[in-house]
Nucleic acid binder design. Structure first.
Lengths: 152, 152
DNA sequence: TATTGTTATACTCTATAACTATA
DNA sequence: TATAGTTATAGAGTATAACAATA
């Protein structure tokens, strides 16, 4: 009889090739954990990621933002609405193409983005500090691969 | 002058220790990608993950489900409402403690869960198939570490 | 006509607050 | 009193459909 074990997520580990599930499960669980460890009072994830891109990558059109974050332009327009309503971003017409809208972070939005990044990385930084050097190297290598897959 | 590069997410890679950001960014980007690659017609992520746990891990109390998924009992109660409203899960009173509610997947819910898992792993399985053996080993090792961090 | 963006509407998932029922 | 669960309400984030403005 084959050895079986119930994983933390309730699925069965039967020893068969199952890397896809392992990666998806680890990513989903860790993403949930990031959410539950999120400091109160911050913007939501979507809005903060858009603000970070505007802060560090410069002004962007709505379409560029929506493609980068893999959401529809309609969804991104609403995220920009949220950022604009609290003064963290502003819209301006593109002078070269009146159909385009250029979105940029305000100085207040940039300050918020930078402060939030430090706050929100605190939890994962603490966890990584508890690992061995070998484990950190593994994660550094894996992060590169995962990023490449995500952006392919 | 220090070499700098703008990352895909718009932040600056200044070569300084930054593993926390790399991991968080890779996980967030990949999670977004999972969402955008999700087949139409499936349940949402939260509901499907609960259904998978009920299918493979057996019946659970509401509190157990909410703790496993790191959400409030109130949130989990609503996710169970969604599953129950379409016939994928049912509630029953715990005969030993009338305060408790036992939630279990119906046969239809179990079938849906198993079919959905295959559908939803198809994208990541394809991507992993394009990697080298070394890269897959790195991801397998990283998945274990990330899972441990997420569940700590 | 094609492209860019917006608004209206709706669904999922989450939270807090206030509540009921049982121990 | 403490524990287990629910409902009401609200907000973020997502989608599709229908629309306006510009190229």
């Amino acid at each position: 009889m084959r050895r079986q074990a119930i994983r933390d997520d309730g699925t069965i580990d039967d020893g068969v090739s199952d890397l896809g599930h392992a990666v998806k499960s680890a990513v989903s669980r860790l993403y949930s954990r990031f959410r539950s460890e999120r400091p109160d009072g911050d913007l939501g994830d979507g809005a903060l990621e858009v603000l970070a891109l505007l802060d560090r990558g410069g002004p962007q059109t709505l379409t560029a933002l929506s493609e980068h974050h893999r959401v529809t332009p309609a969804s991104m327009s609403q995220t920009v609405n949220r950022l604009a309503s609290v003064g963290y971003a502003v819209r301006a017409r593109d002078p070269d193409d009146g159909r385009r809208v250029i979105i940029r972070a305000t100085p207040m939005g940039k300050r918020l983005s930078q402060a939030a990044r430090t706050r929100r990385n605190a939890w994962i930084d603490d966890r990584l500090g508890e690992l061995s050097d070998d484990e950190r190297e593994t994660l550094a290598a894996a992060a590169v691969i995962l990023k490449r897959i995500a952006d392919a």
